[in-house]
Lab assay of single mutants.
Amino acid sequence: DWLCNKCGVQNFKRREKCFKCGVPKS
C-alpha cells in the first residue's frame, strides 16, 4: 500500500490515484 503525498491517506497498491483527493501516485 502507499500513502498519498497530498492528503496522507492510505491507498491500495493497485490504485494509481488517491481515492480521497485524486492525486496520482508518485
Score class of each variant (00 low, 15 high):
L3M: 12
Q10D: 05
L3Y: 15
R15H: 15
R14S: 14
R14F: 13
D1M: 12
G22S: 05
G8K: 12
K20D: 09
S26C: 13
C7A: 07
S26F: 10
S26D: 13
K17D: 07
P24K: 02
K13C: 08
K13W: 10
P24M: 06
C7D: 10
C4A: 02
D1E: 06
C7Q: 09
K20A: 03
V9Y: 13
N11W: 00
Q10F: 08
E16N: 06
P24H: 05
G8Q: 15
L3P: 09
D1F: 13
K6P: 14
C4K: 05
E16C: 05
E16Q: 08
K6S: 11
C18F: 07
G8N: 14
P24G: 09
G8D: 10
N5R: 08
K25W: 07
K20I: 04
F12R: 13
K13Q: 11
F19P: 01
G8P: 05
V9A: 09
Q10G: 06
F12S: 11
N11Q: 04
N5P: 13
N5F: 07
R14T: 15
R14H: 15
K17S: 10
K25I: 08
S26A: 06
R14V: 10
K20T: 03
K17R: 12
R14D: 12
R15S: 10
N11T: 01
G22P: 05
G22N: 08
V9M: 04
N11D: 04
K25A: 09
N5M: 06
P24V: 03
N11I: 00
P24L: 05
K6F: 06
C18S: 00
D1P: 00
C4L: 02
F12T: 12
F12V: 04
R14G: 10
V9H: 07
S26K: 09
L3I: 15
C4N: 04
V23C: 14
Q10T: 13
L3C: 08
F12P: 12
L3V: 15
C7V: 02
E16V: 07
F19I: 03
V23D: 08
R15V: 13
P24R: 09
F19V: 07
E16F: 03
K13G: 11
R15Q: 10
C4T: 00
R15Y: 14
N11A: 01
K6I: 06
K25P: 04
F19N: 01
C18A: 01
W2L: 07
N11S: 01
K17E: 14
R15F: 15
K20N: 00
K6N: 03
Q10P: 04
F12C: 14
G8W: 08
F19C: 05
Q10H: 11
C21I: 01
W2E: 02
K20Y: 03
N11L: 00
K25T: 02
S26V: 11
L3D: 15
Q10E: 12
Q10V: 12
K20Q: 06
D1C: 02
N5G: 10
C21N: 00
V23R: 06
G22L: 05
K25R: 10
N5Y: 15
L3Q: 14
Q10N: 15
W2P: 09
W2D: 02
G8S: 13
Q10C: 10
C7F: 00
K17L: 11
K6V: 06
C21L: 03
V9W: 07
F12K: 09
V9I: 15
E16W: 02
V9R: 05
C21Q: 00
C21A: 02
C21M: 02
R14M: 14
R14K: 14
G8F: 10
P24T: 08
V23E: 08
K20E: 02
R15K: 11
N11R: 03
D1H: 06
V23S: 11
C7W: 01
W2H: 03
N5A: 11
C18T: 00
D1Q: 01
D1T: 04
V9P: 01
S26R: 10
F19K: 02
C18Q: 09
C21F: 00
C4E: 04
R15P: 13
F12E: 13
F19G: 06
K13T: 10
F12L: 09
C21Y: 00
V23Q: 01
K13D: 12
G22I: 01
F12N: 09
C7G: 02
N5W: 06
V23I: 08
C7H: 05
C18P: 01
Q10L: 12
K17T: 09
N5I: 06
C4I: 07
L3K: 14
K6C: 08
K20M: 05
F12A: 14
F19L: 06
N5K: 06
V9L: 08
C18N: 09
R15D: 13
V23P: 03
K13F: 06
K6W: 02
N5D: 02
W2I: 15
W2V: 03
K25L: 07
L3H: 15
E16Y: 04
P24A: 09
V9D: 02
K25N: 07
K25S: 06
K6R: 12
K13Y: 11
G8V: 10
F12M: 13
F19Y: 14
K20C: 04
V23H: 10
V23K: 11
L3R: 14
G22K: 08
C21G: 00
K6L: 10
D1K: 09
V23T: 11
N5E: 12
W2T: 08
R15C: 05
D1I: 03
W2A: 08
K25Y: 13
C7S: 02
C7M: 08
C18L: 01
G22M: 02
K17M: 12
V23L: 10
D1V: 03
P24I: 06
P24D: 11
C7I: 00
S26W: 04
F19M: 12
L3T: 13
L3G: 11
G22R: 05
F19H: 06
E16S: 08
N5Q: 12
F19Q: 03
G8A: 13
S26Y: 09
R14N: 09
E16M: 12
C4Q: 01
E16I: 05
K20V: 04
G22V: 02
C18M: 07
R14Q: 14
K17G: 03
C18K: 05
S26N: 11
C7P: 12
K20L: 01
N11F: 01
C18G: 01
K20S: 01
K25F: 12
G22F: 01
K6A: 14
W2N: 05
G8Y: 14
V9S: 08
C4V: 03
V9T: 15
K6D: 07
C21R: 00
C7R: 02
C7L: 12
E16R: 03
K6M: 15
K25G: 07
F19E: 04
F19T: 04
K6E: 08
W2Q: 11
S26E: 10
N11E: 05
K17C: 15
G22A: 09
W2K: 05
F19S: 07
K25C: 02
D1N: 04
Q10K: 10
P24N: 15
R14A: 13
C7K: 02
V9Q: 07
L3F: 14
E16G: 02
R14E: 15
C4M: 04
R15E: 15
C4D: 04
V9N: 11
F12I: 07
R15A: 14
K20R: 09
R14I: 14
N11K: 00
C18D: 04
W2R: 01
C7T: 05
F12Y: 06
V23Y: 08
C4S: 01
G22C: 05
G22W: 00
R14L: 14
G22H: 13
R15L: 13
K25E: 08
R14W: 12
C21P: 00
G22Y: 03
C21D: 04
K13M: 05
E16P: 15
L3A: 11
E16A: 06
C4R: 03
P24C: 09
C18I: 05
P24F: 10
V23A: 07
W2Y: 13
K13P: 07
N11C: 00
K20G: 03
V23F: 10
G8I: 09
D1A: 01
R14C: 07
V23W: 12
G22Q: 05
N11P: 13
N5T: 11
F12W: 06
K13E: 14
R14Y: 10
S26I: 10
P24W: 08
W2F: 08
K17I: 09
R14P: 14
D1G: 04
D1Y: 03
F19D: 02
L3N: 15
K6T: 09
D1L: 08
K20H: 03
K17F: 14
Q10A: 06
E16H: 09
L3W: 05
N5L: 13
C4P: 00
C18V: 00
W2M: 12
N11V: 02
V9C: 02
C4Y: 02
K17P: 08
C18W: 00
G22D: 04
R15I: 15
C18H: 01
K25H: 11
K13N: 11
K25D: 04
K17A: 13
N11M: 00
L3S: 14
S26M: 11
C7N: 00
V23G: 09
S26L: 12
F12H: 15
K17N: 04
C18R: 00
F12Q: 14
P24Y: 04
F19R: 07
N5H: 10
C4H: 14
G8M: 15
E16D: 08
C21T: 01
K6H: 10
C4F: 07
D1R: 02
K25M: 10
K20W: 00
S26P: 13
F12D: 15
D1S: 00
S26Q: 12
C18E: 00
G8T: 14
C21V: 01
C21W: 00
N5V: 03
R15M: 15
K20P: 01
K25Q: 05
E16K: 08
W2G: 03
W2C: 07
C7E: 12
C21S: 02
S26H: 11
K6Q: 09
N5S: 11
F19A: 07
R15N: 15
C4G: 02
P24E: 11
Q10R: 07
K13S: 12
V9E: 14
V9G: 03
K13H: 02
L3E: 13
K17Y: 06
K17V: 07
D1W: 14
C21K: 00
R15T: 15
N11H: 05
Q10S: 11
G8H: 15
G8E: 04
G8L: 11
K17Q: 13
P24S: 06
K17W: 01
N5C: 06
S26G: 11
K17H: 08
G22E: 12
F19W: 04
V9K: 14
C21H: 04
C4W: 03
F12G: 13
S26T: 13
K6G: 07
Q10Y: 10
R15W: 04
C7Y: 03
V23N: 01
G8C: 13
G8R: 12
C18Y: 06
C21E: 03
K13L: 10
Q10I: 12
K13A: 05
K13V: 07
K25V: 08
V23M: 11
G22T: 04
K6Y: 05
P24Q: 12
R15G: 09
Q10M: 15
K20F: 03
E16L: 11
K13R: 07
K13I: 10
N11G: 01
W2S: 06
Q10W: 09
E16T: 06
